[in-house]
Nucleic acid binder design. Structure first.
Lengths: 361, 361
DNA sequence: GCGCGTAGTCGAATCGATTCGACACGGGCA
DNA sequence: TGCCCGTGTCGAATCGATTCGACTACGCGC
């Protein structure tokens, strides 16, 4: 009878054996088999061995995660919502570092990361994927919407660098203060006319000069905060919104700010990311300006390595990986029911070789 | 009685309402509620409306994905296994492009991507995450192991650029042939002494000269194939295995190959990735060699954009995004029970400005 | 006017595990 | 000798949905 077990010997698409089958073969009840398998509960060694043998014989691959997650009310999956296309989001090393930090923590806790892109109207994932918690990163525009959906599902929400929102645990960065520090550095060097290259401010990532009503139209929290930080010090700064956090977009923005007579262009530019800063430097190079002689450039992020091409960028170094870890930890704590305290990270000013006093003209 | 619905008005951790609760409030059976909600089956408009109203009142967020996935035997999740740490894997734009291609297809089909890293002994994800299929990318060393686990779970497996393996649907690239094409290009230019910088060949990513017994110790399929392609044309080529697919690792390898008397170093280097190639070019620059005057360099991948820094690299352009799409499609087909045919992609040789005839010496 | 098909609804089984409470048995302690 | 408790095992409820088969009316055709 139970020798139907041998079915699996060779056949084609044999259905996955269940715990019940294992129990039957081992001659014990399902509950005992479960106990034996999970190690919880008192089970005699002999029984344990028989169950193990039966499982082995049937090729039982362990409890079905679907059934398990239903019963336990946990799926062991944490959703990560990324606003843009993956290829866009991952162009910036900061996002990768962030994700790496998250993966570091959640991976260690045995949770998987479910990547949810928010492109188009693909709400499907957010509204119906099996998750225990969700981490929003780089989500600006549609934040409210996403939060509403997720909240209705009763999932804990962690948001990295988002504006305060009811029921959302924030992982913050001192964007405004840090940017102000960078700006003050320029002021102390003697700069009085500076430009700002911002990250995309609104949903439509169209590169353009900063509109006067940017406060009203801005939906990207990080960009807005960093901009405020600069304006705190230089209320008159001219701005240009880049189309993305890439070198190319930075170059484009840089060319726009540096166009015109040398006497009328800013003597320093604050870029809201290091990639943008590198682009600005490239633009300066193209219009024949020397950095930092003719133009000082400040970045943000503190990326390292190849992309910099050996440049020692003056920038604000943010602990991206650590930020990711904090987000991961917070998500885990929340889904454990425990309270998680919001984290706030601080960027460190790194004076590099791309800033200097303005050339007297 | 049923006014307990109002509990959710403000309270703390109200448990998520179930379909049963909705049905009760609407005064219909659970089965009818289910039918009404999913739209399947004949339900009168009046009933549908009442169910919808009840769901609305209770704040029902739709069927619990966990229960759904148990019943349906599907979780709507596709696992993507990445061998290394995310920050390492995503340093190479090719991997991002690949993932983007996968996400493109699976996202459109409503499936989420579960990121599983294979760092350490963290088999947890692979062996127990709720997934419907799995895609292995850049998995070399521990391929067999991973495949064994997943196969026992009865999941369809798609592997990108892996060696043939029973029960695994391969998505291939003409690594060997394409590399040979690159090598023949060098031969036709007149080079007779070339070097190869390979991607990591084994688990331990230690940079070192290619050992004589590399065939035996190599576990990375892609690297090995690309190497074979070059050796097909230049059996005597000297090799150096880089520690990663990064510019820095390429530079390091380049310096190693270019050390010594100018007369004894290779006149051309084939790098197994564009990032490595850029590193090699940087190394050449450092030791005072001009590319392509003193040294020709061939890459692999066909990355574009900033990292290249304006270099027109001679390389083999592979359709990475398309490869990802194919992998995604294959996974979807397999989990639909349908047969999926393996895909094989072809790289296109792009003659750039980094190769030239060797300087006569 | 009778029977049959169908729209609409419901009850119950099912997916595969976990876990609580109950039960039987044997040994230690009073 | 009798009682209690811990160990090992089992049955049954439960998680939350989907879906099959059955049942009730009702309308239509013959």
């Amino acid at each position: 009878m139970t020798s139907e077990a041998s079915t699996g010997e060779k056949g084609g698409v044999r259905p996955r054996p269940t715990l019940a089958a294992v129990a039957r073969l081992a001659g014990v009840s399902v509950s005992t088999a479960s106990l034996a398998f999970s190690g919880a509960g008192p089970v005699s060694d002999a029984t344990k061995a028989r169950v193990a043998a039966a499982a082995d014989e049937l090729g039982y691959a362990g409890p079905d995660p679907r059934a398990q997650s239903l019963r336990r009310g946990r799926s062991g999956i944490i959703g990560v919502v990324i606003e843009e296309r993956l290829s866009d989001a991952f162009r910036d090393p900061m996002n990768i570092a962030l994700l790496d930090g998250i993966a570091d923590v959640t991976g260690a806790a045995g949770s998987g990361l479910l990547l949810l892109t928010e492109t188009g109207d693909d709400r499907a994932g957010i509204s119906s994927a099996p998750m225990d918690a969700i981490i929003l990163i780089g989500c600006s525009t549609s934040l409210e919407e996403a939060v509403a959906i997720v909240r209705q599902r009763g999932l804990p929400i962690v948001a990295v660098e988002a504006r305060e929102l009811e029921g959302v645990l924030p992982i913050g960065l001192d964007n405004r203060a840090a940017s102000a520090t960078g700006a003050r550095h320029l002021r102390s060097l003697g700069h009085s006319d500076i430009g700002v290259v911002t990250l995309p401010l609104e949903r439509s990532h169209v590169p353009r000069p900063l509109p006067a009503d940017w406060e009203r139209v801005a939906t990207a929290h990080t960009s807005a905060e960093r901009l405020r930080g600069v304006l705190d010090v230089y209320p008159e700064a001219r701005g240009f919104a880049a189309s993305a956090s890439t070198i190319e977009a930075g170059r484009e923005a840089g060319l726009a700010l540096l166009a015109g007579d040398r006497a009328t262009v800013p003597t320093a530019i604050v870029a809201q990311s290091d990639l943008l800063a590198i682009g600005v430097i490239r633009a300066a190079d193209e219009v024949g300006m020397i950095v930092p002689g003719d133009l000082s450039v400040v970045g943000f992020d503190g990326i390292r390595g190849e992309v910099l091409g050996g440049i020692d960028l003056t920038t604000l170094v943010q602990p991206a990986v650590e930020k990711g870890r904090a987000a991961g930890r917070a998500a885990l704590q929340l889904l454990d029911g425990g309270p998680a305290e919001p984290a706030d990270f601080t960027s460190v000013f790194h004076p590099g070789g791309t800033t200097a006093p303005p050339r007297t003209r």
